[in-house]
Design a binder for these strands. Structure first.
Length: 413
RNA sequence: GCAGGGAUGACGGAGCGGUCAAUCGUACCUGACUGUAAAUCAGGCGGCCUACGGCCUACGGGGGUUCAAAUCCCUCUCCCUGCACCA
């Protein structure tokens, strides 16, 4: 299947400035990544996976870290002005984000650039004359982000954030001129910014350059944007979200979403996805689609070894492999992957829940205990204390709730 | 600058001197039913405790009035709406 058909089938094309067939001749494209945090989330992963697809279809990839643009802050999709981040923090963020992109592009040819390289030395007056002159204020004012921020109930917008779109347009133009980049890809909230570049190139170079946006990934069950909420964020950084937690997240995906995620987040071809969805329909309780999804995505983000390990930890979680018989080597890894504490026999369940982070406070832990939400080694647990006999070989699995993802390892001190 | 209006828990939004740890909705957590799914129903949802009870901290910041304040007064900060100023 050629690239344009594949992307259409996966639902990855929202807006574009070209005929679909144009995609099928490989050229050079770029994807800009914001550096507002030191780690990417699965929200960013969707678009990076799209970049991977283009690369595998023969396109040359330029990955742009927004060292300069992050200093200003993208107003797109935000309801109020952002806090400016210190420069040192953004530099750190860039390093973190770069490393993750390297991992995701392992074995694929790609180029990393930082727009600080050219935006950093840009002179303001030159910018106004060369770039500013090419933007119509009328057009800019009609942009949705400006409109919502400046409208009746808007929170206002600063000149700095307002100018963001022009900077991004400049990026595209610079890359077009200096690196022969002909396409920019991004999530649909970047559409306006991408068009800034397209029209700037048209005006200044009288040449064609194009933009492609993909839809924002939405949780079908709740209708909400995916991976955006602060607390529930799933990070690519294993220090923030361990590979096991990462794997568990995908295992736990709703049935309604799993097909879409397979298309967006894995490189599995159409036939394989259809095959999986067939099985999913027949035996949903075995969760074949979720298992495939979790395996594919974890392997891509954290590597094949980490994926294997996450799968084996899952076997311990669901009691398929008894935790009492875990090998010393695996145990070491589990201590990293799961919340874990050392305890004396006789420790109260409340204390164990709080210490391990499964409960937020003593009150919270008491509520959980009262509602019979405590499990030890996959069995409902109603006693107040963990006795010596509850530990098998000096350890046990403590769990909050019925789903396996909120588990912790408790070991005898 | 002047005049009005506003700031309440994760969010939206009630309350306008005691019965307010604060109605309600959403989000979130747990239980039942299931499949580590969804929907539905039920319970919970500031913290702490030797708990059908008690204590602490909270309604933008600070100060006051009162036996008693989220509720009244003063003041500061920020936001909104008009008007004025500036073009």
């Amino acid at each position: 299947m050629n690239l344009s058909d594949d992307l259409a089938w996966r639902g990855l094309i929202k807006d574009k400035t070209f005929e679909p067939k144009w995609l099928d001749t490989p050229r050079k494209f770029y994807l800009g990544i914001d550096a507002s945090s030191d780690s990417l989330t699965i929200g960013n992963l969707a678009i990076i996976t799209l970049a991977r697809r283009l690369a595998e279809a023969g396109w040359s990839a330029v990955m742009l870290a927004g060292g300069a643009t992050s200093l200003v802050g993208d107003p797109g999709g935000k309801h109020e002005e952002r806090e400016l981040k210190p420069k040192s923090e953004i530099e750190r963020n860039i390093e973190g984000v770069k490393a993750q992109i390297e991992q995701l592009f392992a074995g694929q040819r790609h180029e990393m650039v930082n727009n600080l390289e050219w935006l950093g030395e840009l002179k303001y007056l030159d910018f106004l004359r060369d770039i500013g002159k090419n933007f119509s204020m009328t057009e800019l004012m009609q942009r949705e982000f400006v409109d919502t921020r400046m409208g009746e109930s808007g929170a206002g917008i600063s000149y700095a954030e307002f100018s963001y779109s022009l900077l991004q347009g400049y990026d595209f133009w610079w890359l077009f001129k200096n690196k022969d980049v002909q396409l920019q890809i991004g999530a649909s909230d970047q559409w306006g910014n991408m068009l800034s570049g397209v029209s700037l190139i048209r005006k200044k170079e009288t040449s064609e350059a194009h933009a492609l946006s993909m839809p924002l990934v939405v949780n079908k069950a709740t209708g909400r944007k995916f991976g955006k909420s602060e607390t529930g964020a799933i990070w690519l950084d294993p220090k923030r979200t361990s590979p096991t937690q990462f794997y568990q997240f995908w295992i736990n995906v709703d049935d309604a979403d799993v097909e879409e995620y397979l298309k967006i987040y894995t490189l599995l071809p159409k036939e394989a996805v259809n095959e999986l969805m067939g099985q999913q329909k027949k035996t949903p309780q075995e969760r074949p689609a979720q298992i495939a999804l979790a395996g594919e995505v974890t392997a891509m983000v954290h590597g094949v070894e980490a994926n294997k390990f996450a799968q084996s930890v899952t076997d311990y979680l669901i009691g398929k492999s008894p935790i009492a018989e875990v090998s010393e080597a695996a145990l070491k890894e589990i201590r990293i992957a799961l919340p874990n504490i050392k305890a004396q026999p006789g420790i109260s369940v409340i204390e164990a829940l709080v210490e391990s982070g499964l409960a937020a406070s003593n009150s919270d832990a008491r509520r959980l205990a009262q509602s019979k939400a405590v499990y030890v080694n996959d069995q409902q647990f109603t006693k107040d204390h963990l006795e010596a006999g509850d530990f098998k070989n000096g350890r046990l699995m403590l769990r909050r709730g019925k789903a396996y993802k909120d588990s912790a390892l408790i070991e005898l001190a």
